[in-house]
């Protein structure tokens, strides 16, 4: 049995009594050592879910459990120690006057010894390629550099739950791949739960499970391959499928029978190769 780390039980949320509900009866579980991607149109409630997970907001209805503990005013301080989050705009989370202070900040709050802190600052900044900027003021970084530092800060605290809210949106595709492979290595090594909120379809493919939000409700929840098989229905709710899935679809229409719902280049080339050898 896999260990449940996060549980949403019939959660509904709105930003004010006069405001419309932005989450409606949302329930899901996230397990230890699992990578879940949350996707959905703009305004579908993804960031709201993230903020509920670390107690920045509280639901009006339903309960949220992190590691068996219900999230409320009394438990948030404990819970935040275990939940690391990178916000959509990194400016909203910089607190240090230099990059290295910023990475140190979260560790200081968690009482990590000095020697260990120095080691982790070094390790996490190197992991995101920002080791040369440790004395720079965060607001003097480029857009993508800010995102790299924000990710380093959260890696350094080594939380049990890591939430990345469009944390790589400003990176070039190569940088995005590198950072995500760093993050996924850390996830494996520390057996943490990784939750990525993203519009990048190539990133979604790498997750084990996908939760699709639509207008505040869970529209679907399945493995990437099952999700991306619903091509037209995804497009109807403002989403899309990766280039390779679109190409496979068009190849099918043109008479080449691609049967395995390929999601990356290697898989599609492999399918074509099988066809080729039968021609």
């Amino acid at each position: 049995m896999r260990e449940k780390l996060i549980e949403f039980r019939n959660v509904s949320f709105r930003y004010g009594e006069e405001e419309p509900w932005v989450l409606k009866d949302v329930s899901f579980d996230i397990y230890k050592n699992e990578w879940v991607a949350i996707i959905g149109h703009n305004g579908s409630g993804k960031s709201t879910i993230a903020k509920l997970m670390n107690g920045l907001l509280f639901p009006q209805e339903g309960e949220i459990y992190i590691n068996g503990q219900v999230v409320n005013q009394d438990t948030i301080w404990d819970i935040r120690k275990e939940v690391g989050m990178v916000f959509q705009n990194p400016d909203n989370q910089f607190v240090g006057t230099t990059v290295q202070d910023d990475v140190a900040f979260g560790m200081e709050n968690r009482g990590i010894p000095r020697d260990e802190m120095i080691r982790r600052i070094d390790e996490s900044l190197t992991a995101v390629g920002m080791q040369d900027y440790r004395l720079t003021e965060p607001h003097r970084l480029s857009g993508g550099q800010k995102q790299r530092v924000a990710i380093a800060s959260v890696l350094a605290i080594s939380p049990q739950v890591l939430i990345l809210d469009e944390a790589t949106a400003m990176l070039d595709p190569k940088g995005r791949l590198e950072i995500m492979s760093t993050v996924s290595n850390v996830q494996d090594r520390n057996e943490l739960s990784l939750i990525t909120i993203t519009h990048d379809l190539r990133e979604v493919v790498q997750a084990e499970r996908v939760i699709v939000m639509n207008e505040g409700v869970i529209w679907d929840e399945a493995k990437p391959r099952e999700i991306f098989a619903k091509k037209d229905r995804l497009r109807e709710i403002g989403l899309d499928v990766p280039f390779i899935a679109t190409l496979a679809d068009e190849l099918n229409k043109s008479g080449l029978r691609i049967s395995n719902e390929p999601l990356n280049h290697e898989e599609l080339l492999e399918d074509l190769w099988t066809l080729h050898s039968k021609m």
């Binding site: 190409l247 068009e250 190849l251 043109s254 080449l256 074509l272 190769w273």
Partner: peptide, 26 residues
């Protein structure tokens, strides 16, 4: 690289590309 079949890039649509792949393989 895999098939030894060059298909030039000319800003074609995905549909057009699929037809070209099908054609080249046939």
């Amino acid at each position: 690289k895999r098939f030894g079949l060059p298909i030039p890039f000319k800003r074609q649509s995905v549909k057009q590309l699929a037809d070209e792949i099908q054609h080249a393989m046939k």
